[in-house]
Design a protein around this nucleic acid. Sequence first.
RNA 1: GCCCCCGUAGCUCAGGGGAUAGAGCACUGCCCUCCGGAGGCAGGGGCGCAGGUUCGAAUCCUGCCGGGGGCACCA
Length: 553
Amino acid sequence: MTPEQLQDVVRTAVAAVAGRGELPVDVPAEVVIDRPKNPEHGDYATNAAMRLAKPAGRPPREVAELLAAELRAQPGIAAVDVAGPGFLNITLAQGVLGQLAVQAVTAGPGYGRTDVLAGQQLNLEFVSANPTGPVHIGAVRWAAVGDALGRLLEASGAAVTREYYFNDAGSQIDRFARSLQAAAQGRPVPEDGYAGAYIDDIAAQVVAAEPDVLDRGDDEQLAVFRARGVELMWVEIRTSLADFGVAFDVYFSERTLHETGALEKAIARLREQGHVYETDGAVWLRTTDFGDDKDRVLVKGDGEPTYFAADCAYYLNKRERGFGKVVIMLGADHTGYVGRYKALVAAMGDDPDENLEILIGQLVNLVREGQPVRMSKRAGNVVNLGDLVDAIGADAARYALARASIDQQIDLDLDLWSRQTNDNPVFYVQYAHARIASVLRNAADLGLALGEPEDVDVAQLAHERETDLLRVIGEFPRVLASAAELRAPHRVARSLEELAGTYHRFYDSCRVLPRGDELPTSLTTARLWVCAATATVLRNGLAVLGVQAPERM
RNA sequence: GCCCCCGUAGCUCAGGGGAUAGAGCACUGCCCUCCGGAGGCAGGGGCGCAGGUUCGAAUCCUGCCGGGGGCACCA
């Protein structure tokens, strides 16, 4: 019985008691099922009685006693105790927990998937680095977290489109082109331009592809450097993301918004809604009507649209593509962005709390031997995605970035995460998987197989370390569902660390395979199922994080 | 000045109102004739401060202190 199923049992019990008129309450949509830390508090606990006490107008313990009596009659439940202020501590019948191992193994890659977000059409935008340089370390966090979040949302039943928005219309691209041109001509890059070895590399590649480029007129040169340069930059960006295990469904060009008249359309829509005015020759959106601290310019005095105008058009475009929820992941340096974005959504006539979600994540610092790593290309230090993967590997990088709450600044210690030791959390988790794989290999060598689910005697699984492990396995679907709803992929990583630790303790106390000339028993088979179930959860959890689950290390 | 994030064990961090606040690392002392010791067991130590809401607050609200980030007719 999973905690979700137990939740239904408790609700059924409430309904039964209420139906007999013993308790004047409605059946709650959700009841909280806890996994108590203290083993004396049973396999599971619920605070349902305390929550129902007030609406029922009865003391919590009295409500608890009514529910306990009802629950004791339910199949699969061995004992129910009323404790403390009114907790219901539930002990499951022998073998009920063991079924969790069978459920996990038979569900395989599907174990943990739920439909809590079914029907939601989500557009998830992250990274969105401009093609004027490699993906900088600051954006790598969003590559790791965003991709994990995408997988998590899908595992919870949502339809997710991962989107990468890039600016290829404005002056940044022009500066990029001029920087390439200067590098090709052997001049220093402009003061407001881009510098770095990659500029020289790309400039050289452009010249190699079009040897006569420098003989043409200035405008024509810039056009070539812009087009070829962006193309080459894209190759590098997409290659580094692919090496990191991240792929997008849509790469969205800002330029297309300008070319298709989407900006004018968006401004017209905002005008219809009555939030646009003109002052000093510029066109403004009155975002202060919706809580922003100042109004924002849509079209500058020189007639050029702002980046914000493109944002308006882009948002409208996403909504027109059918996305009910527009999710955008940004770094803490974009905090000031939230107010105006919420306001533009409201000005469009949408609900900023329903249709828009901006996830702001704190910044990443690199640390080596306790000292901050200065992120300068000249010093040869790590500055971008490819460098980070070279330094610690894609698995460690993804795990390190995804295991922290996005609200927390990260000091990413390159020594720690490149170490192949147990103080490196990703190795702790991967090791557990490799260890199980080894046990299962040894079992196969002994001619032992899991066999059919109906032949496993799961009631054999009664050791405390076994039931601890089974409870963690049973928790997994809830972990994924709540992590998805909270947009918190780090919870998955933390739960895998708990699972790995719980498995190691099980392994230490519960011999799985027969030793010497012992014969296998039904307990051997049952424990093999527990091992396989643990491996399944580790694999599925690591898959959400985009991290390998190795058979050997 | 205004806005956002953070402050929990020596360190790095989990803890979306519930029982005795957890993990990893570090430290001390233990555990292998046996499935991977990259493991396990035991021990010491903690919610920045002050109010408030609640039967119950690390969690929600307010103020203060400390650290980080942000406040363009830039992109």
